Structures are given as structure tokens and as C-alpha cells.
Simulated scan of single mutants.
Amino acid sequence: MKIVVIGGTGLIGTKVVGNLRGKGHEVVPASPNTGVNTITGEGLAEALVGAQVLIDLANAPSFADADVMNFFKTAGANLAKAAKVAGIRHYIALSVVGSDRLPDSGYLRAKVAQEELIKESGIPHTIIRSTQFFEFVDGIAHAGTQDGTVHLSPAHLQPIAADDVAALVARVAVMAPANGIIELAGPELIGLDDLVRRYLTVKRDARKVVTDVHARYFGTELNDKSLTPGDNPHLGPTTYQEWLNRQAANA
């Protein structure tokens, strides 16, 4: 089976490509540095020739509200058009758990817009909404830092390892389209403040984490339901402590 992975050279994309190639599939990692640009459309039609499955894992280069909305709307429209012409039989996209519950976040509004373009395309599809990746904890700490102190909400998350995300994406790629949304999360609930506090401890980072229920997470306030999945999500097996232990071992 030929599978095209948009964003195939990124964090999740490289893992998905390796996973699917290991199972004998013809996989094309597509990104601007491989000559495929979803914003301009350059190389897109050529990459999709003969493909049965399209996986969109690309992310916006800027998280500014207008930029991220333009990215996902433009790329989404170009992908849907090219996928229809190519006769794609399964269009898969990675989105975010809770994206439709947090309209104050420009990034999540853009992810909802991307999802709607896929649904409206008429192409058989599966939208995988994932919780936050362990690998993004450093960025969360940076975003919450004010004058050397990290201000974060205690709201619960159910974060997940990138390896576990990639494993499910690869599984879905060879399954029948769900024609809807499936959710993916890690195995445990963790407060956002504690998530970062434990990471900084492992990294021997002296920044103090201050718990603040009104602290904004990329533009929006959180509660325990904001970024946690609904009933019966797919669960990745890797615990946060297991992942932290690997970070410590590789330090």
C-alpha cells in the first residue's frame, strides 16, 4: 500500500514513516524539505499519485492566531482538493483532544477548522484527537515562564508519549476509515503544574512552578475537563515516569 505522510519528517511523522515501512508499505514522507508544500501546493499532486492513504501530521510554523488559522485552512483546502483528484481512500489527520471545547485558543480554533474541511471533503477519513505529548513539556514550561517563574494551571491532562501516538496513527492507516473522530490519551491523569514540575526536577532546572488556576495555556484557561478525553479513548501504554526515566538516562 502506498501511504503519503504530510509532515513525515517531524516528531510524529518520522516515527510513523518508520513504523509503516517496517510493515512493508510504500511510504512517502512529504514536507517542504522533500519538495512538497501544502501551502503553495508544490509537489502535492505528484506525491499522491498511486497513493491509497493520506496522513496529515503537519504543524504550523507560527502559533500566532491569524498565522495558524491561515496555515490549517490553506493546507487543508489544498490537501482535500489533491486527495480527491488522486482518489485517496483514507484521509487521516492528527488533531487535539478538547479542541472544540476551548474557543479562546487560536491554535485550537484552527484545528477545528482543519477538522471541518476534512469532514466536508466527502473523503473517507479518520480524525485522531490526541492529548498533549510528553515531548512538548519543555515548550509548555517556556510558554508559562514569567520573570523566571513558571505559572501553570493545576488542571488535569492525560498526556502521552510520541511513540504511542505514532503507533496508533500507523495502526489506523491500515484500518477502515472511522468517518469520524477517535481519541487517544496516555494512561494517567496528571495536573499540568505537576507535569512540568516533575520534568524540571529531572532536568535539574531551578525554575519554580507556581500553581495558578487562572494561568492561561496557550491563550485559554483550563479546567479538569478541558484537555482530557471522553469515554473509552485509545490509551498509550507509556507512563510519564517511564518517559522521565528515559530523559534522565539520556541526560
Rank of each mutant, 00 (worst) to 15 (best):
Q158H: 05
A141K: 10
I3H: 04
Q114W: 15
A161Q: 04
S62Y: 04
T40H: 11
M1H: 12
A178V: 15
T40L: 07
G230Q: 05
F218V: 14
P32K: 09
D163V: 07
I123R: 11
T74L: 05
A185Y: 08
K119S: 08
A64M: 08
G43S: 11
N245C: 03
G236H: 07
M175H: 06
N78F: 03
A248V: 13
G76W: 14
F63P: 02
V137W: 04
Q132E: 10
E242D: 13
R171G: 03
E46S: 10
L227P: 01
S62T: 07
D100E: 08
P237F: 07
A215G: 02
L48T: 06
N223T: 13
G180R: 14
P154T: 14
V169E: 00
E242G: 02
L44A: 12
V5G: 02
V209K: 11
N19K: 14
A86K: 06
F71W: 15
A113H: 05
D224E: 00
L48H: 06
G98A: 10
K119C: 04
L152M: 11
D100F: 04
F218S: 05
G186H: 07
G180M: 14
E46G: 03
R171S: 11
V49H: 10
R21C: 00
L227F: 11
R216P: 00
W243Q: 09
I39A: 05
G13T: 12
V85C: 00
D147Y: 08
L117D: 03
I140L: 12
E46C: 06
T149F: 01
D193L: 09
M175G: 06
R198W: 14
